[in-house]
Design a protein around this nucleic acid. Structure first.
Lengths: 204, 204
DNA sequence: GACAATTTTCGAAGAATATTCGAATTTAAT
DNA sequence: ATTAAATTCGAATATTCTTCGAAAATTGTC
């Protein structure tokens, strides 16, 4: 247990940091980043305002911490799900749907990531971009394998396929979040994946 | 000529407003909204800071004006292009590509709209949402007609089809803008449209 | 063309928010 | 027990957004 071997002081400090990120996720996710002041974040986290700066360089840095703190859990879930399936095609499908499930279960995080971070200038920062790239490359790799296995047509450009899937994912999520969840995200995502995949398949 | 019949004072006022929006489009588009201060906008527009408030309620209001000032030109272009084609399928394709051309030719606007406005909380404002909805419905309508004409399969849900196209469009544009235009937008958009459309077609 | 009414402009001040500084406190190490 | 190190946070500063109202410019009227 890492947490237990940490010195008392360090552990407390870490818990504090986590409380701040949790508060930020919630507030940024509900009201948007621009509409949330650090004063509010500090209040919800139960720490004095200047203490935020003991953990984060500035507001932007706190914003970046929100998705970062979720990547680990997300990737674990995605790989766990994918490993349970056989064949790249099934793995791709399972990954896509697990991704939507994660968003459904963590809408605040989803909103910060898909609506505020990923599209915004934040991606210009190397730190965030790296994570986003990794995210996309995971899909590229699965598509590539499905092509190699002969499940998808040889004509398929894996990057184009990835753009299609990521684009659908983002758009679906954005509409779901912005229009107050007018449909069941995973169900609709399933329909969308199956529709998209038609164009990936080998012409018989 | 509306502009010429306007009283001198009103005309100057309108030109001023246009200069402000132009400055805002440029700065918001290059640095992002959060990283751009109104002081900078005012300076680039050549007006004193408080004068911004003679035209816009607050910063958010100025942000909203950026896409609004472009809709007219965009819609004109889209409908002109679509009307030159026959059959809903060709019209849809032409619309999609003309849309990409407009983005390519107005990247600052594209960035403000696709990266800052559309995904952000701003869509929560009725005024902006209305415009966005209209945008999407245009695609829905064209798809619907293509289905009715028997060009697309009857199984196709027009809304799902729209999500797919809009998702692709957004993602393609976002990557193009954020990764410093690594490909020719319209060419890649063409490949993407054709790939997506495979899943719309009637199974023979 | 002079005068009043109206609209437009913008300097000065205020409010909200982000950020820094460093001294006080707490914990860890010797 | 004493020193060193890390952590916390009150007080002060900097930046940015926003308001107010008086000055200036324009328009309408006689």
């Amino acid at each position: 247990m890492v947490a237990n071997t940490l010195k008392l002081k360090q552990r407390r400090s870490r818990e504090r940091r986590e409380r701040i990120v949790a508060a930020a996720t919630r507030l940024f996710g509900r009201r948007g980043i621009a509409q949330t002041s650090l004063t509010e974040v500090a209040k919800l986290a139960g720490v004095p305002l200047p203490s935020l700066y003991d953990y984060f360089k500035d507001k932007q840095d706190l914003v970046a911490a929100v998705p970062e703190d979720n990547y680990l859990a997300l990737y674990e879930r995605l790989t766990a799900v994918a490993n349970g399936k056989q064949g790249p095609r099934q793995q791709l499908r399972a990954t896509f749907l697990a991704n939507l499930e994660y968003i459904r279960d963590n809408p605040d995080w989803g909103r910060v990531f898909f609506l505020e971070i990923w599209p915004s200038a934040a991606v210009g920062q190397a730190r965030i971009r790296k994570a986003v790239d990794r995210y996309g490359l995971h899909y590229v790799e699965l598509i590539r394998r499905a092509v190699a296995a002969g499940e998808y047509t040889r004509d398929l450009d894996p990057y184009l396929g990835m753009s299609l899937l990521m684009g659908s994912l983002c758009h679906l999520t954005a509409v779901w979040l912005l229009y107050r969840k007018p449909y069941e995200l995973v169900d609709r995502g399933t329909a969308m994946f199956d529709l998209t995949e038609v164009s990936f398949l080998r012409r018989s």
